[in-house]
C-alpha cells in the first residue's frame, strides 16, 4: 500500500493551519504538488515542505511523524482513506469529516471531529475540549461516525451532537452531552459535573458513577438489550459495555427537565458483593 509520509522537520513558532493535509487532496497530488501546497504559519503562506519532509505521492493514506500540537485542521472534511499520526496533533482534527479513518498515536487538541458526519477517529492519547461538538452558534454537532479517545477529554464532549457515537475511555470534564440532540456518548471513567445538561434526546452511558444535574429523574433499573447490540458494534473498536445482569445493572435517568428533554443517562452499577 502506498503512503504519503510527512515528517515534521521544523517546529512552527505559531499555529500552522494545514487543512490541505487530507487523503482526498493527497490522493490526487504528485510529490511536487504536495511539497508546494500551501500551509499557513500564522498569517504567512508557506510551502508545506518548509515544515515537513515529504515522502510518497498520490495516496489516500497519510502518515505523519513529529510533535504537531500546533498543526491544525488535519484531515479536515476528509471523505476517504486514512490519516495516521505518530505524535501530538493540534485543534480541529477531522472536523467536518465525512468518511475514512484517523488514528492519532498521541494527544489531540480541541474540537476533535467537530460537526463530523461519518468516518472514524481514534485518539490513543488524550483529547482536548469539545470533542464531536458543534461550533459556536451551529444548531448541530456531530451527525454521524465514531470517535474513540483512549485517554481523557475536556469539557463539552458531544455538545449538540445529533447522531453517531463518542467513546471516551478515560474521564471527561464538565458538560459532556451538553444540549445533546441525539446519538450516544459512552464514558468509561465517568465525568466531572453537569453531564447531559439541557439534553433533548440521545443517550449517555457512564460505566462509573457520576454526579447528575438536579433536573434529571431516575426512571428505573435495567439491562437493556440495546447495550448488547452496541457492545457488539463497538467490539471491533476495542470497547466493551458490561451487561451481565449477574454482575450489575444500569440505573436510568431521564431529562433534562429544564428543556424539557427526553434524553437518557444510563449509569452502570455493579451489584454489591455479599
Amino acid at each position: 500500500m502506498s503512503e504519503v509520509i510527512l515528517r515534521l522537520k521544523q517546529d512552527p513558532v505559531v499555529t500552522l493551519e494545514a487543512e490541505v493535509i487530507t487523503p482526498d487532496k493527497f490522493a490526487e497530488m504528485s510529490h511536487e504538488q504536495i511539497c508546494e501546497s500551501i500551509v499557513y504559519h500564522g498569517k504567512r503562506q508557506l510551502r508545506l515542505d518548509e515544515f515537513f519532509e515529504v515522502e510518497g505521492e498520490k495516496s489516500e493514506h497519510i502518515v505523519l511523524h513529529g510533535d504537531m500540537h500546533r498543526v491544525r485542521h488535519l484531515g479536515r472534511a476528509m471523505t476517504m482513506g486514512s490519516l495516521t499520526a505518530h505524535g501530538d496533533v493540534g485543534m480541529h482534527l477531522g472536523a467536518h469529516m465525512k468518511g475514512g479513518e484517523i488514528c492519532i498515536r498521541g494527544n489531540a487538541g480541541d474540537w476533535v471531529g467537530a460537526e463530523m458526519s461519518g468516518g472514524k477517529i481514534h485518539v490513543r492519547g488524550e483529547a482536548g475540549q469539545q470533542v464531536g461538538a458543534a461550533y459556536r452558534g451551529s444548531l448541530a454537532g456531530m451527525k454521524g461516525g465514531i470517535i474513540i479517545v483512549d485517554g481523557s477529554a475536556g469539557i463539552e464532549v458531544g455538545m449538540r451532537m445529533k447522531r453517531g457515537t463518542i467513546f471516551i475511555r478515560g474521564s471527561v470534564k464538565d458538560f459532556a452531552g451538553l444540549q445533546m440532540i441525539g446519538g450516544t456518548i459512552i464514558l468509561g471513567e465517568g465525568a466531572e459535573i453537569r453531564t447531559g445538561a439541557w439534553m433533548q434526546r440521545g443517550t449517555i452511558i457512564s460505566l462509573k458513577p457520576i454526579d447528575l444535574m438536579p433536573t434529571f429523574g431516575e426512571s428505573g433499573v435495567m439491562n437493556p438489550t440495546f447495550i448488547s447490540v452496541y457492545s457488539n458494534l463497538l467490539k471491533p473498536h476495542g470497547c466493551e459495555l458490561p451487561n451481565d445482569q449477574n454482575l450489575g445493572c444500569y440505573r436510568r435517568f431521564s431529562g433534562d427537565r429544564s428543556v424539557p428533554g427526553k434524553g437518557e443517562i444510563l449509569i452502570w452499577q455493579e451489584h454489591a458483593l455479599n
Partner: peptide, 21 residues
C-alpha cells in the same frame, strides 16, 4: 448553573424534588 436550570424546569411545571433543590 444548577439553580438556573432548576428554575427553567420549574417555570414549565416540571418536577424537581426537594432533595434535588
Amino acid at each position: 448553573f444548577e439553580l438556573l436550570t432548576i428554575l427553567r424546569a420549574l417555570i414549565k411545571d416540571q418536577k424537581v424534588s426537594e432533595e434535588q433543590v
